[in-house]
């Protein structure tokens, strides 16, 4: 780690006009991050654990209705409501990557952060993960398996960010734009998700975040989210 850029500011652009609602991001995320499968009953009850989920809404008036999709994950707020309320610093801001991290080992499960998150990106482990015998081989060794009673949430695949940075450092070169992709971005078939460093004005994500279609989710709350949504409708598709 010879040269650590501390100016990184990772961000994501979600092009809703391109999203087809296929949920590939949800699946990829679950596999990458060892997100527990809680079972049909729990999902129906409202305890399904997803680090990214797809809000399905309807647009237009009958009979001209069309589904609209809004993939929602942790917005990695610059001023995150979940952080100050945690009594044990389990929800912390990483200085280096400028994202919100959840330190599972510190979490005592007050669930205050989950109440305070306006995006409902935070998930609670109501029980220990149930991983039957051959399935444990699928677990990603880079990501902790969480026990019952702790909160968890999207980390922008921080393990991939760190991995990419280490590779770049080993090859003695700066990190290239598009080199690091979270699992959801890698899996998106329609290219609706774009990930990159917002501190670099020439990166693709920075360019796209300037788009006229851009908006931030619940921007009025002052959370300074790092996820930008693009939604134009009409000739933009969607």
């Amino acid at each position: 780690m010879a040269e650590v850029s501390i100016a990184e500011k990772w961000g994501l652009v979600v092009d809703q006009d391109r999203c087809t609602g296929c949920n590939a991001c949800v699946v990829a995320c679950s596999m990458e991050n060892n997100v527990p499968f809680t079972g049909e009953d729990n999902v129906a009850f409202g305890r399904g654990t997803y680090w990214i989920y797809n809000k399905r809404m309807w647009e237009g008036e009958y009979p001209r209705v069309a589904p609209a999709f809004q993939p929602v994950m942790c917005q990695q707020c610059g001023s995150a409501p979940c952080e100050p309320v945690c009594p044990t610093f389990a929800a912390v801001h990483s200085e280096e990557e400028q994202i919100n991290l959840q330190v599972y080992i510190r979490c005592i499960g007050t669930r205050y952060c989950a109440n305070n998150c306006p995006y409902h990106a935070r998930q609670f482990n109501f029980q220990d993960p149930d991983i039957p015998e051959p399935m444990n081989s699928y677990l990603n060794p880079d990501v902790t398996v969480r026990s019952k009673g702790v909160m968890e949430k999207c980390t922008f695949c921080v393990q991939r960010i760190v991995g990419g940075r280490q590779t770049a450092s080993a090859e003695d070169r700066p990190l290239r734009d598009g080199e690091v992709t979270p699992a959801c971005v890698a899996a998106c078939p329609s290219g609706a998700l774009v990930f990159g460093d917002l501190s670099d004005p020439n990166s693709r994500v920075s360019q796209m975040a300037q788009n006229e279609r851009q908006y931030k989710l619940m921007d009025e709350l002052g959370t300074k989210p790092k996820v930008t949504y693009l939604k134009g409708g009409g000739r933009n598709g969607g």
């Binding site: 669930r111 989950a114 109440n115 109501f126 029980q127 019952k148």
Partner: peptide, 15 residues
Amino acid sequence: STGMWVTGLRRPIFW
């Protein structure tokens, strides 16, 4: 011993 799933809590009601 079993975890909080025995409660009625679910997203978005964590308290």
